[in-house]
Write a protein that binds this DNA or RNA. Structure first.
Lengths: 159, 159
DNA sequence: TTTTTTGTACAGTTTATTCTGTACGAACTT
DNA sequence: AAGTTCGTACAGAATAAACTGTACAAAAAA
C-alpha cells in the first residue's frame, strides 16, 4: 500500500516535470520544482540533494534559476541556519507569467535590433536611391520588423 | 557598397535566426529558414549546403523538420530534377500556429496522463478511504490537473 | 542494361551542455 | 580566537546534441 503511494509520486514527478520543462526549464530545474511543490514545505539544499540524488552544487545553481524566475522563494525559519526554499503555489500564473515575460523581453529586444538594421539600410538607400537590391533588402527588413512587432503584441496581449 | 549589402544581409541572418530559434527551432533550422526566406526563391539541398557551409546531410534532416512544421514547402519546377524547397512567407501566422499547436498537443497529452494517474489514485482511495496521505496526494493531482487544463485552454484561446 | 545522380540512414566524431568534486570566503559556534 | 558549517565559483568529467562522411537504395540518364 505504501508502495502504491510511492509509485504514484514517482509518476507525478515524471509527468509533472515534463510539463514544467516545456516552459524552458532544464530537467533538473523541473524536477526540483516538482519535488518542492509536492513536498509542500521548505527544504534545504542538502535535503534536495539527498531527495533527488544530485550534487549540492547542482541544487545551488538550479535553485537560483528557479528563484530568478520567481518559481521558488527563500524563506526563513527561526532556529534553522540553512537556506530554505519553497515552491510558489499558483502554478498557472507563475509559469505563464515568467514564460511570457521572457518572450516579451526577448522579442522586443530583437525588434529593436532589426529596427536598427533597417535604419542603417534606409540611410544607405538615401545615398544610393537607385540600388534596387538595397531597396528589396529594405522591404524584407520591413516585413521582418512587422513580424517582430506582431510577436511582441501577441504576447503582451495574452498577459 | 556591395559590401554594405553583404554586411546587412549577414546581420539580418544573425538576428532573424535568433528570433526563429525562440520558436523552438535549433540554430541550423533557424538559419536555413532565414536564408530561404531572404532568398525568396526555391533552393536545392546542394545550394543550401553551399550557402550555409554545412553538409548536405544536415540540410536533408533539417529541411525535413521545417517541412513538418509547415514552415517550408517542397515545390516542383519543370526541368529541375533535384528537390526544391521554399520558405512559406506569412511569418507571424506560420510561426505562431505551429508553435501553439505543438504546445496544445503536448499539454493535452500531459493532461491526459495526469488524469490517468489521478483515476488510479481515486481507485485506491476507494479501497482505503481513511488514508490521509493518499487523500492529500489526490488533492495535489487535482491541482496539477487544473494547471494542465488551464495551459491547454490558454493556448487554445490564443489561436 | 549500365552508369550517374539524388536523398537519406547510420556510425562515428565534434561540439555544447550538464553535472560533480574540490576549494574557499563568509557566517555561525564554541 | 580557532573550529565548523554553509553556499557557491570554478575546473574538469560525464552526458547529450549537432554535425559529417560513408554507404546505399531509388530514380534518371546514357
Amino acid at each position: 500500500m505504501a508502495d502504491n503511494k510511492e509509485a504514484i509520486i514517482r509518476r507525478i514527478m515524471i509527468e509533472f516535470s515534463k510539463t514544467i520543462e516545456m516552459f524552458d526549464l532544464n530537467p533538473l530545474e523541473a524536477r526540483l520544482f516538482a519535488h518542492l511543490y509536492l513536498a509542500e514545505k521548505p527544504m534545504t539544499l542538502d535535503e534536495m540533494s539527498e531527495a533527488l540524488g544530485k550534487s549540492k552544487t547542482a541544487m545551488s545553481t538550479n535553485i537560483r534559476s528557479l528563484s530568478e524566475l520567481n518559481l521558488v522563494t527563500r524563506v526563513w525559519k527561526k532556529g534553522v541556519r540553512k537556506d530554505l526554499y519553497q515552491a510558489n503555489r499558483q502554478l498557472f500564473k507563475l509559469f505563464t507569467t515568467s514564460y511570457m515575460n521572457k518572450w516579451i523581453d526577448a522579442a522586443a529586444h530583437q525588434r529593436d535590433t532589426i529596427k536598427e538594421i533597417e535604419n542603417e539600410a534606409i540611410k544607405q538607400l538615401d545615398e544610393t536611391p537607385n540600388d534596387r537590391e538595397l531597396k528589396k533588402l529594405e522591404e524584407q527588413l520591413s516585413s521582418i520588423l512587422v513580424f517582430h512587432e506582431e510577436v511582441v503584441a501577441f504576447f503582451r496581449n495574452k498577459k
